[in-house]
Nucleic acid binder design. Structure first.
Lengths: 120, 120
DNA sequence: CGGTATCCAAGCTGATACTG
DNA sequence: CAGTATCAGCTTGGATACCG
């Protein structure tokens, strides 16, 4: 199987998937939308304070280009823009939850085994 | 919940997980081990020709530091080193498979809907 | 075979300032 | 509010040389 997408070639669905959701903050962004939807830019910024605005907007644009999220601009002043997951984007929920589950699992192990680490 | 790990602080298992598996090539590396295990460095290089050796070794070291994989050095000449997933590393299988599944799903949609894209 | 060291180019990331 | 512009710094990639 060979997949051509946006001038690039992928040999597995996995590689295609990683090129789309592998961005620095994309899983975190998608996680926000799973919690709450739709979201305005400023709301995402509150949920992800570690992401600077330029990167957040860039990752949102890429997700929009890949049809993972939709962007709706209300014609009002001041501007109001709402983002939400598309249908194919909502299918990423199992990916995000499996990551969360594994992370919880890992932190449980830390709590039990590693005395250099503490969980409050 | 606050998790302290390697001098950093995480507020969710998800953020901890992303810090561990979010590296540029880590999911791909873990995917190799799910297909076949154990693997020698040269075998991983054949499976991931796009990753240069320096990066591959760096990501393997990070995964080893995080106890996701184990590294076993046979005391022979020429050197023989085998890598494989640890117990907690094997628990990443659902993460990888969910990514693969979504990617296959996405490429199916491309095949059906997007006439700028072709799947051979 | 399985690394490490170095150099250099390119791309990504972040902080800050600014705009309609 | 929702962006854009700019610049600095870090990360990554690619080539090459070298070592036990």
């Amino acid at each position: 199987m060979v997949i051509h997408y946006k001038d690039k070639t992928f040999f597995t669905g996995k590689d295609l998937a990683l090129s789309i959701i592998g961005g620095r903050w994309k899983i975190s962004i998608i996680w926000c939308f799973i919690q709450q939807s739709p979201l305005r830019l400023s709301e995402i910024q509150k949920k992800l304070p570690d992401v600077n605005q330029r990167m957040l907007i860039r990752q949102l644009r890429e997700l929009e280009d890949d049809k993972i999220i939709t962007r709706f601009v209300y014609p009002v002043v001041p501007p109001k823009v709402e983002y939400q997951l598309s249908e194919i984007g909502r299918l990423l929920e199992p990916v995000v939850t499996s990551i969360c589950d594994w992370g919880d699992n890992f932190s449980d192990l830390l709590e039990k085994n590693d005395n250099k680490t503490s969980v409050d």
